[in-house]
Each structure stands twice: as structure tokens, then as C-alpha cells.
Amino acid sequence: MAAVAALVTVGAGLGLRAVATGDVAKYGGDALYTLMILTLVVLLAPRSTPARAAGIALAVSWAVELLQLTGLPAELSARSTAARLVLGSTFNAPDLLWYAVGASAGWLALRVAVRGR
């Protein structure tokens, strides 16, 4: 189930980029980035509680964003498309909020899924 959710999340991100531009695409992509990390957490640790999975996803997202303050992701992104997709390149404080939106949406979805079992 988590693998399917990961694929759907990637599809949603690609679809968003195809139909939207500007802030909608950027910040929607940020939220989906954290949601994707959350699906990977659930895939790797399926017994994680919704709060733990969301917290880990948010922490990873924030860590990657804060790492951008060092310039290392920009250097790696200049040499690798994969690094650019995973690490980004430039710190942007509003991204931190949108990562929290993605983690919150994932937490809510997991809560609903857990209760539905």
C-alpha cells in the first residue's frame, strides 16, 4: 500500500508541474516532497505510528532545506539532476511551512487509513 502511495505521490507531483506554474507548483511540490518522504518512511517502517512517520518526514524535509544554507546541495545540484531533485539548491524559508503542510496531510491520511482497518 505504501509503495502505491509513493507512486501516486510522484504522479501527483509530475501532474502538478504539468498543469501549474509559479507558487502553486513550487509550494505544492514542497508539500508533496514531504508526503513522498512520509510514504517511504511507512514503506521502510510499516509499524510506525502516523505521528512518528509524519514527524520523521518533516524532520528529513527540514534537514534537507537547512542543509541548503551550506551551499553543498547547490554544488551537488550543479553536477547532478538527481541531486537537484532530491536536495534542491537554494534555501527558501517558506518551504519549511509547506513541508509541514505535507506532513500534516500525510498524518491525517494515515490516521484515516489506520482507523479504517
Rank of each mutant, 00 (worst) to 15 (best):
A5P: 07
A6L: 15
A6D: 08
A6G: 14
L7T: 07
V8K: 02
V10L: 15
A12F: 05
L14Q: 14
G15Q: 02
L16Y: 11
R17I: 06
R17A: 15
R17D: 15
A18H: 13
A20M: 08
G22S: 10
G22R: 10
V24W: 11
K26L: 14
Y27N: 07
G28R: 02
L32S: 04
L32N: 10
T34L: 08
I37A: 13
I37Y: 05
L38T: 07
T39H: 03
V41R: 02
V42D: 11
T49N: 00
P50A: 01
P50D: 01
A51T: 12
R52C: 05
A53S: 08
A53I: 01
A54N: 04
A57N: 02
L58T: 06
L58C: 09
A59D: 03
S61Q: 03
A63K: 01
E65V: 00
L66D: 07
L66H: 03
L66R: 10
L67W: 12
L69V: 09
T70I: 12
T70N: 07
G71L: 06
G71I: 12
L72T: 13
L72E: 01
P73I: 09
A78G: 15
A78E: 14
T81R: 14
T81F: 12
A83T: 07
A83P: 00
L85R: 11
V86I: 15
V86C: 05
S89Y: 08
F91W: 04
F91A: 09
P94G: 08
P94Q: 05
P94C: 09
L97A: 15
A100M: 02
V101A: 07
V101D: 06
G102C: 06
S104M: 11
S104H: 01
G106C: 01
L108H: 01
L108W: 12
R111A: 09
R111T: 14
V112E: 04
V114N: 02
G116Y: 02
G116I: 00
R117A: 08
